[in-house]
Design a protein around this nucleic acid. Structure first.
Lengths: 363, 363
DNA sequence: CAACTTTTGGCAACCGCTTGCCACATGCTT
DNA sequence: AAGCATGTGGCAAGCGGTTGCCAAAAGTTG
C-alpha cells in the first residue's frame, strides 16, 4: 500500500499544528504536514475558492493581480504541485505523449527517444515509452489501451498497415516516423536520396555487383530502400542482388555476411548499422577484408558506427532532431494555433558519411 | 483540441431524475459511437450499477459469477478500457513508475532502461522515463513534481546526497541503482570485486604503473572504484596514478588519453566504457598502440565494447537484469506481500571480460 | 418456519481539479 | 443618477472511477 493514502482518518489529533499562521479557523486537513497539499489547501491559505486558485495558475490574467500574488505565495509556501491525474480527469488532457518504438534494444531508436524526450520535456509533457517488440498487435494494443492516458502518439517505424494506421489516426492524434502515411503527419528520413548517394559512391569506386541486405519485411523504410536500390542500381547497369530478410541485430550479421559473400557482390548496402556491424565482425572473423575484398555501407549512423572496425561508411541523418520534429508536429496537432494548418510531412536530410568500410572494387 | 471532450453538451436538465430504475429508456450518452466508453456505459449495457462493474473488474469474487459474466461481455463488446487517470484519482495509485537516469545519451543506461521496461511491462505498470542531466537539482525537482504521478521511483546512479536521499525516501517509495544508501533499497554492481579482478589481470600481465581515469565526482560508483583501486593497487605495490574527473562521454576520451599517457602509466582502468572508447580512438590517432604501449580496461561492457578497435577489455555485469531486479524490489515495496520484509540490497555479480585492449606491460 | 449468516448489488461520498455560469463590484458613459 | 460594459471571484456540476456502508436476496440452521 506504500502509496495509497491511509483512507479515512481525518486528523483528530494533529501532530504539529503549532505554528498556525494565516488560515486561522479550523485548518482541518492541513495541519499535519503529511500528505501532499491539494488545491484546497492552497485556496484556504490564500483565503479564496479553489476555482480561483485554479484560474490563477492556469490563466493568470483571469484574476486580480493582487489575488494572484497571494495565491502564488500560498502555493509556493505549501510547495504545491497540481495532480496531473486530477487535472487530466477534468480537463480531458493527460499532458502525456506515448512514444512507440519497435525495439528499445536498438540504438537507432535511442536517438529518436533522446530527441522526443528533449522536446517533450521542454514542452512540459511526460513521455510514455513503449516497446512494441516489432509486433503490430502489440502496437495496436498499446494504442488502444493508452488512448485515455496519452494525448497523442508518436509511432516510430510503425508496423501497422495503411488501413490500420488510417483507422487509428481517425481517433487519436499521432505522427509517424519513418513510415509514410497519407492519414497522419509523418517525419521521415530522405531514404531515396541516401540510397542514390550510396550507389553513386560505390559506382565511383568501380563496383558493379551490388547487394542489398534486407531488414524486416514489414518495415516501410526497408521496402523503400530496396525499391530505390533496385531502380537506381539497375539504371546504372549494375548487377543487383538481394538477400534477407534479417532481423536487424548484430547477431544476424553472421548469416548476412555469409550470404552476401556467396552472391559474389563486391559491395553491400545494408538495411541498418546494427546488421552492418554484425557483418563486419563476421567478415573479419572469416578473414575477408573490408573494404579490400568487399565494401559495406550501413544506414543510420548509430552510436558505434564511428568506432567499429573498420569504421563504417553509413547513411547519416539527424535522427535526434527527427525525434524533436516529430514531437513538434504532434504538439502542433494537439494545440492548433490560430495560424495555418500544421505541417504534414517533414523530410530529414541525409548524407553519406564515408569512413573506412568502403573502398575500390577488387581487381 | 483533438483530445479534450467536446465540453458542454449535457442533455439539458433531467440529469438525475433517477426514478426510472433501470435505464432502458433514452440511452442518452451512449448512442453515437464516438467518445470512448466509460464504466457507466458498461454498467448500462449490463444493467447494473457502476460500482458493480468496478468490483466485477477489480475483485471478481465479490460479485455473482453470472453478473460478472454479463459485465465482462458488456465490457468486451464496448471495448472498454478503464481510465487510468480516474482510477488513479480515486484509488490513490497511478500504476506508473518513474525511472530517473542521469543521461539517456549514455548506452549504459539503455541497458538499465531496457531491463526496467521489460519488468514493468510484465507487471502492467507504465514507465515514466526522465533524464536528469546529471544534475541533482533536476533530480529532486522531478522527484517532487512527479510524486503524484508515480507510485515509486528508480534512481539510476543518483547524484543526490545521502541526506537528500534519506529525506526523499521517507515520503516516496524508491530504489536506487548503483548508489549505496542505507535509507532505501539498493541494487548495485559488485564494483570492488570487479576492480580487484581487473588489477589482478593487470598484475599478471606485469603492469606496475597503473592509472585510474575518473568520472563524475558526484558519482558514488566512481568514488567506490577509485577507493578500491587505490587500496588494492597500493597493496600490490603498484605505482598509482589518478586523472580526471572527466565527463563520461567518448568526446572526453581525447583529453583523458593524453593525460593518461603523460602519467607514464602502462595501464588504465577507466571509469566507464564510453570514456575508454574515446581514449582508444585518441590513442589510435596518436599512433600509440593498444595494448602494446598501453593497456585499457573499461567498465560496464556497453553496446560497442565488443566491436570497437581493439575490442575493449572491460568489467561486465548483467545490467539489464539489474534493471529488472530494481523493478522487482520496488514493486515488492509497493505491494508488501504477506511474507517477510522485502530485500533491501541486491548485488549484481561482475566479471572481467578480457578482449584485446589489455596485454603484457611494455619492456 | 423463524432467526440468522452470507452474498450480492446499489447508494453516495469522495479523489483533486477544471470550467460554465452567475453575481457582485467597479468604472465609464451619457 | 441611471445604464451598461468589464473585471473578479464563487458556486456547483462534473471528469471516471473506487469503496464504505447498507439493504435486499439467498442460503443455513435449529
Amino acid at each position: 500500500m506504500a502509496v495509497g493514502p491511509a483512507s479515512k482518518e481525518r486528523p483528530t489529533a494533529m501532530a504539529d499544528s503549532g505554528t498556525t499562521g494565516t488560515a486561522r479557523d479550523a485548518p482541518k486537513r492541513d495541519a499535519g504536514r503529511d500528505r501532499p497539499p491539494t488545491i484546497r489547501d492552497v485556496a484556504e491559505l490564500a483565503g479564496v475558492a479553489t476555482s480561483t486558485v485554479s484560474r490563477a495558475l492556469a490563466r493568470p490574467d483571469r484574476v486580480n493581480p493582487r489575488t494572484r500574488i497571494r495565491i502564488e505565495e500560498a502555493a509556493a509556501e505549501l510547495n504545491y504541485v497540481p495532480s496531473s491525474q486530477a487535472r487530466g480527469l477534468s480537463s480531458g488532457r493527460t499532458n502525456a505523449v506515448a512514444v512507440l518504438v519497435p525495439d528499445i534494444t536498438n540504438p537507432f531508436y535511442f536517438d529518436i527517444i533522446r530527441g522526443t524526450q528533449h522536446q517533450l520535456k521542454a514542452a512540459g509533457v511526460t513521455q510514455l515509452l513503449v516497446d512494441t517488440e516489432e509486433s503490430s498487435e502489440m502496437e495496436l494494443d498499446a494504442l488502444h489501451k493508452m488512448r485515455k492516458s496519452a494525448d497523442g502518439f508518436i509511432l516510430a517505424a510503425s508496423r501497422l498497415t495503411d488501413a490500420q494506421l488510417a483507422e487509428v489516426s481517425r481517433t487519436q492524434p499521432l505522427v509517424t516516423f519513418n513510415r509514410a502515411s497519407t492519414s497522419a503527419p509523418t517525419v521521415m528520413i530522405d531514404t531515396p536520396s541516401a540510397i542514390i548517394q550510396a550507389l553513386e559512391h560505390l559506382a565511383s569506386l568501380g563496383h558493379h555487383k551490388v547487394c542489398y541486405v534486407a531488414g524486416p519485411p514489414t518495415s516501410w523504410s526497408n521496402q523503400m530502400r530496396w525499391k530505390v536500390f533496385e531502380d537506381d542500381a539497375t539504371r546504372r547497369g549494375m548487377e543487383v542482388h538481394r538477400i534477407g530478410p534479417y532481423t536487424p541485430k548484430t547477431t544476424s550479421g553472421a548469416a548476412a555476411a555469409d550470404a552476401a559473400v556467396r552472391t559474389g557482390a563486391t559491395a553491400c548496402i545494408v538495411f541498418n548499422d546494427l546488421l552492418a556491424i554484425g557483418m563486419l565482425q563476421r567478415l573479419q572473423a572469416r578473414g575477408i577484408r573490408v573494404p579490400a575484398d568487399i565494401s559495406i555501407i550501413g544506414s543510420d549512423d548509430i552510436f558505434g558506427a564511428d568506432f567499429c572496425n573498420p569504421p563504417l561508411t553509413t547513411i547519416s541523418s539527424p535522427i535526434e532532431q527527427a525525434g524533436r520534429v516529430a514531437v513538434s508536429m504532434l504538439l502542433a496537432q494537439l494545440n492548433p494555433l490560430s495560424g495555418s494548418a500544421s505541417r504534414q510531412l517533414a523530410v530529414m536530410p541525409t548524407h553519406l558519411t564515408i569512413r573506412d568500410s568502403t573502398g575500390p572494387a577488387p581487381h
